[in-house]
């Protein structure tokens, strides 16, 4: 009745509409699940008729063109592919590491001091904690190129702001609970802002389009105010 096709014990396929199905890999967020989703996404790109993929924490939404391709044939190919993959040995060869320089400071990170106070840390300790971790890009969304990165060290866990800011400047680096992210464009946002990167995260005119893709490993590298300005960073925006 719900159009559920059992495949392997780990991956479930559900029809969402006449143009989409959802693959569920796990009920909980983990690096293993994220690895599996990255591998499956990579292979599904090669199947004709699949026009879009949205990987997220535990699921992969597959959108297909049923105007020109047979829905059952596509679903069969997806099932076969998922069953044939050996997740235990298939290490993710494509994993890229992206390093993002960040100027941590109150003039670009108005919540830096609040976060330190909330977490009973010094500002220096907040910076050290945030930049020591290798994060994983679990999903891209909210706005184009906005990467949901996790997990932040527990010492930095802090809720979102009660009232979101109407404008968060482009390049702002922020945290919320176990997540961290860089705002690729100026949008409203409720996360705690602690710094800013001079890097451009999206450039639709370039071949790479977006700096971070789901599955990537992301590290933050503290830079000084002078380095930030030398790399083209700006201080305005609030």
């Amino acid at each position: 009745m719900y159009n559920t096709t059992p495949t392997t014990p780990e991956v479930r396929i559900d029809m969402v509409s006449e143009q989409a199905c959802r693959l569920t890999f796990s009920a909980t967020i983990s690096n293993k699940t994220a690895d599996q989703i990255t591998i499956v996404s990579h292979h599904l790109r090669k199947i004709a008729g699949i026009i879009d993929l949205i990987p997220s924490y535990t699921t992969l939404l597959v959108i297909f063109d049923t105007d020109h391709y047979d829905r059952f044939a596509i679903c069969r190919q997806v099932t076969t592919l998922v069953q044939s993959l050996d997740f235990d040995t298939a290490a993710d060869q494509d994993a890229r590491e992206v390093v993002i320089p960040v100027y941590y400071g109150s003039e670009v990170g108005p919540d830096l001091e609040y976060l330190a106070e909330y977490c009973h840390l010094t500002v220096e300790e907040v910076i050290a904690q945030h930049s020591k971790t290798a994060y994983r890009a679990y999903a891209i969304g909210f706005t184009p190129g906005f990467a949901f990165l996790g997990n932040t060290p527990e010492a930095l866990h802090c809720p979102r702001k009660d009232t979101p800011r109407l404008k968060v400047p482009t390049g702002s680096v922020a945290v919320a609970e176990q997540q961290t992210a860089v705002y690729p464009s100026s949008t409203p946002g409720g996360w705690q802002i602690i710094g800013r990167t001079p890097l451009q995260l999206v450039d639709w005119g370039s071949e790479s389009l977006a700096l971070i893709e789901a599955g990537d490993t992301v590290r933050f590298e503290p830079i000084s105010r002078d380095e930030f300005l030398a790399q083209g960073g700006t201080l305005d925006g609030f």
């Binding site: 959802r22 949205i54 997220s56 992969l60 999903a139 969304g141």
Partner: peptide, 10 residues
Amino acid sequence: IISEGIAYGS
């Protein structure tokens, strides 16, 4: 739910 991809018409 855990954030996931949204299909047209959801």
